[in-house]
């Protein structure tokens, strides 16, 4: 069943566009062109940040961090190998993508650790960036409880991701 969700979305969207008299094929091409532009903005940061991530892995810094984080992470059942991802996810989206992809390739995309990293990436956001964009635009200076509440949501995401990676 799950195998058909994505192909069916493709078909349904195209058929509905046809029904509405929209030029679906042309829209796909337009979107793909936007995708290329988006990619062009991601690639430079991916190259620079993956360099840092590979340096951290090769130097053994990840190993040190994992050992420090292990007691807390084990208590919550979160794989300690995702420690760096958990730390960087709320701060920088591109760094999280670099760290996450490195974890997936090191431990295997289909391993529990790799799946946990993928689910974490897919179900959390760059919290501090989002807060600064929205509060900056709305001229808010006193943020009250928004940071603890948003970080609690992130933590819930990391915790549940570790569970669902094993269950589904």
């Amino acid at each position: 069943m799950i195998d058909y969700i994505v192909p069916l979305i493709l078909l349904t969207a195209s058929l509905l566009a046809l029904k509405k008299g929209e030029d679906g094929y042309h829209l796909l091409l337009e979107g793909a062109e936007d995708g290329l532009k988006l990619l062009l903005t991601i690639v430079p940061s991916l190259i620079v940040l993956l360099t840092a991530v590979h340096m951290l892995r090769a130097s053994g810094a990840f190993g040190l961090l994992e050992n420090w984080a292990a007691p807390v992470f084990q208590f919550f059942g979160i794989p300690k190998e995702t420690a760096m991802l958990v730390l960087i996810r709320p701060i920088s989206g591109s760094a999280a993508l670099a760290v996450g992809s490195e974890i997936m390739s090191t431990y295997g995309v289909d391993s529990t650790i790799g799946r946990t990293a993928a689910i974490m990436l897919g179900s959390t956001e760059t919290t501090f960036y989002t807060i600064s964009v929205y509060f900056g635009a709305a001229n808010i200076r006193k943020t009250r409880y928004v940071v603890p509440a948003a970080l609690f949501a992130d933590f819930t995401g990391f915790f549940v991701a570790s569970l669902t990676a094993r269950l589904f």
């Binding site: 566009a17 979107g31 190259i47 360099t51």
Partner: peptide, 30 residues
């Protein structure tokens, strides 16, 4: 050694992701 392999991995990942990202932003437009 990691300085060189990391940068290379960045380009490789970007190229292998390109197709899926472009297709999905097309579907998003639809």
């Amino acid at each position: 050694a990691a300085v060189a392999t990391g940068a290379q991995a960045g380009v490789q990942l970007a190229i292998s992701m390109a197709g899926a990202i472009c297709l999905w932003s097309g579907v998003g437009r639809l």
